[in-house]
Nucleic acid binder design. Structure first.
Lengths: 236, 236
DNA sequence: TTATTTTCTGACTATCCGTCAATTTTATTT
DNA sequence: AAATAAAATTGACGGATAGTCAGAAAATAA
């Protein structure tokens, strides 16, 4: 598809512009701010044309979520390339996740909307599976690091825990923290002044609890993170 | 208010019935299943009367969330009464949380809806603060146990972490896990066969990582939980 | 240039939230 | 018990917005 006809190109670009406007509408005014008539008005096209691109409102939401989910996936995959001990590679994943959160905070709003069944229901199977692929790919990346750690003895799982279950724990902690942070305005009032850093610390504590070597007391986290930033995220 | 007039009693009961029907509508068909006209139809009252009870749709949602949030609060407060070492009292909280999750899974759907700003916005300040009170009370309960643990030496916080931040970590882990569990249908397919138990194990790992004594390896969890069930939740 | 296919349009339908003037019911006073 | 005042109820209505579709316009093929 290198040489699109002018018309095809126009259509493709319009699709992108619809998403772009929709994203800012949601960022500004939330779910109810997304309004098909207003998108049509702002792009100076008719509403019917929008429905040529997206079969319903919810389809736009999942398309937006997919855009950012793909960015997360590539960040994770880049992070996993870091050369070093398994625990340091996990730290790189944490750094990727942190960057993603800070640059795409709105992603969590989309994700939260999609976790409401009556919203997800209306989206196409196709986009649902793309979304699941992205999630699964991220879990695969993290799961791979966990398995490597087990293989080389950095991590020894008790409680008959599996690698997938380790991923679930980290996923829960991060998803929960980020969801709370992104949707609460009064964290400072309840004594949480640096929630993102707190989340990172807890991640380290959880890995320590699992006995993932080297323990956080046995290396200088800041030093490793600097290394990660230099090697993996230097272009960012 | 012991002797209500018949009319007042009727009104109060109708309020409850509105919530009851609304709850089942949301449980069955999600956010879009909640329909003011249909509530009126099923209760054989006019729509205007519903608006005498609740100023808008979202007000019903938050009222439902408050109903269950209050149950959680009382479960937490009961759990905190458990006599024993601080870590065992945390275990009691975990047990309370587990019971709450299993009996009121739908609560997380309400909570997720309320974390969408455009929905929360429409609810009254009054109910918002009731909701916050409930949350804060739960955090206070857990925070109290953390402070007790610090005071008697069971827990020594490094990283300049505060008691509130410890609560935040546990809260994130549980909120994230429960939110994922309640909104995912395919966890089994990705290798998570016992997600609730996994969450519990991770909680223990996190507490171990924080160095909260006694460590999970130093006592028989099942034995303590049995004790908790006998002493705190025997009436359930 | 003509024919055919694709795309676009916007008026229209359907749904549903929330309002309010008129009506009915309940409570109070005489 | 009747009259009056207050409170509660009603349902038709306005307004917003999602989604449709027959006809018009534009792009492509013949």
């Amino acid at each position: 598809m290198v040489d699109l006809t002018p018309k095809k190109l126009e259509i493709q670009q319009r699709g992108d512009r619809i998403l772009s406007i929709a994203r800012s509408m949601i960022v500004d005014d939330g779910y109810h701010g997304l309004n098909m008539d207003r998108i049509a008005e702002q792009l100076e096209i008719s509403k019917g044309t929008i429905y040529n691109h997206f079969s319903c409102k919810e389809e736009i939401i999942i398309a937006l979520a997919i855009e950012t989910a793909e960015k997360r996936r590539s960040l994770f995959q880049a992070a996993a390339q870091f050369r070093g001990r398994s625990r340091f590679r996990m730290l790189a994943i944490g750094e990727a996740d942190l960057r993603f959160f800070q640059e795409h905070t709105s992603h969590f709003e989309f994700e939260r909307m999609l976790r409401i069944p009556s919203i997800l229901e209306k989206t196409s199977e196709k986009r649902q599976s793309v979304m699941q692929m992205c999630e699964a790919a991220c879990m695969q990346v993290v799961g791979g690091i966990v398995r490597d750690a087990i293989a080389n003895g950095d991590l020894e799982l008790t409680n008959s825990m599996t690698a997938e279950e380790v991923v679930f724990g980290l996923w829960s902690l991060h998803y929960g923290a980020q969801s709370i942070i992104a949707s609460s305005e009064n964290l400072d009032q309840i004594g949480l002044h640096r929630p993102v850093e707190t989340m990172t610390t807890h991640t380290a504590m959880l890995l320590d609890g699992l006995g993932w070597l080297p323990l956080s007391t046995e290396f200088d986290e800041n030093e490793v993170i600097e290394q990660i930033n230099n090697e993996v995220f230097k272009n960012v």
